[in-house]
Write a protein that binds this DNA or RNA. Sequence first.
DNA 1: TGTACATCAGTGAACGCGCGTTCACTGATGTAC
DNA 2: TGTACATCAGTGAACGCGCGTTCACTGATGTAC
Lengths: 239, 239
Amino acid sequence: VYIVNLPSDVHAVNILGVSDSKTGDRYHHGDLRNALIAAAVALVRADGPDAIVLRAAARRVGVSANAAYRHFDRLSDLIEAVRQAGFDALSASMLKELADLIPTGDAAMDAILRLRAIGRGYIHFALAEPGLFTLAFRGHQDSNGHQYVATDPPDASWNLLNTALDGLVEVGVLAPADRTAAVTNAWATVHGLSVLLLGPMAGTPAAARDELIDTTLGLVMRGLAIRADPPAPAKPRKR
Amino acid sequence: VYIVNLPSDVHAVNILGVSDSKTGDRYHHGDLRNALIAAAVALVRADGPDAIVLRAAARRVGVSANAAYRHFDRLSDLIEAVRQAGFDALSASMLKELADLIPTGDAAMDAILRLRAIGRGYIHFALAEPGLFTLAFRGHQDSNGHQYVATDPPDASWNLLNTALDGLVEVGVLAPADRTAAVTNAWATVHGLSVLLLGPMAGTPAAARDELIDTTLGLVMRGLAIRADPPAPAKPRKR
DNA sequence: TGTACATCAGTGAACGCGCGTTCACTGATGTAC
DNA sequence: TGTACATCAGTGAACGCGCGTTCACTGATGTAC
């Protein structure tokens, strides 16, 4: 069990449409593949990314360990499926925040609010699902060896972020010249804050934490927004 | 072996003063504790944080597995020592960048350059020592159980960052009101960028990568610096 | 300086564990005629 | 609609592995007198 403050207001995202319960006592399970993924997700939730154990997942579903091999060639394929489920849930969390947005009528403000919503969705997912979040962004094993390999870009969520940034450019808030660095900056800040809240700053009370998220997203916006004075490194005012 | 672009210009930091070689063939090793830590560091470098294996470390030093128990109560104590070595090396990397700074005579500019140097030191460490970096910021095991627990704040490096931010306030670049959020924002961005460069963006050519680091640090500064227009959420200009 | 002896820092064998994976198998299901 | 048979999706036992850790031990070192 992760000892991380998980205040009730951070609502867990429903991972996939997959249920953890056995669907009958049939000899042929019917949906063993998804059941094993769901069991592995439960293991990750309970004890973190390293808790994915083939035998444990099979045990949890009530099936012999060997049965898993009808659906996954190797343990690492199961882990990969869980990783993918994590990425899907991440995008879902972002989309949820976007859907909750109420248009203000001001196109520029709406574009800003969309970027902030995406950031919130990201961070909320990390807080709600620390295990899946950690697993998703962990280097993983190569299929033909035991080497570590860079994680792939998280497709859907990455696209969401890019769309939001394009929106900011269209609306004149983000300078086209800053567009490229903006992806990295926004993603890095939001990801880093998630890690911080999960790690060194775990235990921050919910209210302070939510305010911190808000302020940080504000600072990101301030860094990205076009401004009157010359760009970075900003000439500081003398005291 | 980490498949991560590690261009030669990113110089590895010498971890501790500890050497990996046996210091003689004496029955009493003399410095087995440090030798085991060094061996574990080598394991992490080669195969990542999960590669710390007590028997493997002992094997590497040329000592019976059991001998390790004279110096560590449990495997987790060895891992903790390696984590600590990682944090020490992180601070050392930051201090190195600070030491390389040439004063400009302008106090405000110098304060800005110090913050940037700290950020560079952080990111360079991550790139040079991906295994130690990952291990350091990974949730770790509780001493009395197998639960995951939040990482402690990385003392020395955290202090370095705070000192730099205090300097920015003193010099009038950072508003006192933004001071609190600034730590989080700066740390999060720099940490997130490190993860990004190690993961999804591994393989970015060295030149592009260094420019990206610079631009991102610039955006951080832009977010933190006092500005004429009202603070976040910044009212965007109409197009 | 010499001796007795406690303590320190190792050795080597062994234990038990849970794991991923393989083997030979069998019951359930679906399809061709 | 009924039957034969291929295929699918499981079972249960077993293997070998490397691990963390414990046990009883012994050689080296340091210190008191």
